[in-house]
């Protein structure tokens, strides 16, 4: 699966080269910073998704979890809950959503795609029903940028993302639990026979993804002074795309977070790159789909050449 990441890396380098040639303004610090801050929450979700997919599971409910957590964060802040506690409660709520998915998958044996498909519709519609589409407005002044001011707030979001990424990379590589995730993803039954608590780990990856999604929702919400109730629409596809573009095997057992970082970067760059290059927005989805298909084809071609 490494070859998919290589194929994508080649594509990405080509895109950046074209940008450097046609629109050097793209590489200005302010632009790169804005793209990074905007996409940091999606990257955090994709990180959790990577772990879930490596474990041989999938979670398509993250977009809905993200929306509920966003509205919750706004509602708590509006009710006067101090921000650190709001952050904690939001991450905790996300963790609970993750636990629900985990329980459906491990205790009841519902396949993860079915369980999370149901959770996706359930949370989204419940939220629509509850908010009736209304936004959370009139938030306290200290909500935006966590009261830090714009520059520090942006810095804090990026720092948090980098720290989470580093911690997760290390955990997946060096911790017993991280190795166990790869083990159950590559062969569940063997992992069980080797003494790994398969159900516990499976439950854990959903819990982790939920907590990361809650945290991402908070980091995303604090960039604004109002919370929109339709947040996170399509986030699940974005996160899954980032993971698989990054070379992680959808059937589990193989992949890493660096690939996801690459995948998320490619997806983050496409929309602004099109504007910079003056290409019409109508082709955006087609280009995204083309990249995924192209990566699969290229992967096959490169891996065949190597085996010869």
């Amino acid at each position: 699966m490494k070859s998919r990441a290589i194929a994508i890396g080649i594509f990405w380098a080509a895109l950046l080269a074209v940008l450097a040639w046609r629109a050097p303004g793209f590489f200005e610090f302010a632009n790169l910073r804005d793209i990074a801050v905007t996409n940091a929450p999606a990257l955090i979700v994709a990180m959790g998704m990577t772990v879930v997919i490596i474990a041989g599971q999938i979670d398509v409910s993250v977009g809905s979890q993200f929306a509920v957590a966003s509205v919750l964060a706004g509602t708590l802040a509006k009710a006067g809950v101090p921000l650190p506690l709001t952050a904690l409660l939001t991450a905790f709520a996300g963790m609970l959503f993750g636990c629900l998915n985990g329980a459906l998958v491990t205790a009841l044996g519902v396949p993860s795609i079915v369980a999370t498909l149901a959770a996706m519709a359930f949370w989204r519609e419940l939220l629509r029903w509850y908010t009736q589409g209304a936004w959370v407005q009139g938030l306290p002044a200290g909500f935006q940028w966590m009261g830090l001011g714009q520059a520090q707030g942006e810095f804090a979001i990026l720092t948090a993302t980098v720290l989470l990424f580093a911690a997760l990379v290390r955990a997946m590589r060096n911790l017993q639990a991280g190795r166990a995730v790869y083990a159950i993803g590559s062969q569940r039954e063997s992992a069980r026979l080797a003494g790994i608590p398969v159900n516990g780990i499976s439950f854990g990856v959903f819990m982790l993804l939920g907590a990361l999604t809650g945290l991402a929702a908070l980091l995303d919400s604090v960039r604004f002074s109002e919370v929109q109730s339709s947040a996170g629409a399509g986030l699940e596809l974005k996160a899954i795309s980032a993971v698989v573009i990054g070379g992680t095997s959808i059937t589990g057992g193989k992949g890493n977070l660096w690939g996801t970082l690459l995948g998320a970067s490619v997806l983050a760059v496409i929309a602004p790159a099109l504007t910079f290059l003056g290409i019409n927005a109508f082709w955006e989805k087609a280009i995204q789909g083309g990249i995924i298909l192209g990566a699969i084809v290229l992967e096959r071609v490169t891996s065949q050449r190597r085996s010869k």
Binding site: I58, L237, T251, A286, L293, I296, V297
Partner: peptide
């Protein structure tokens, strides 16, 4: 090309809609 159906059709999910919009 040995692509996993989930990924391949996720790709064509975007591709087909994108061509229609384009």
């Amino acid at each position: 090309f040995g692509g996993a159906p989930l990924i391949v059709t996720l790709g064509t999910y975007s591709l087909f809609r994108g061509i229609a919009e384009g």
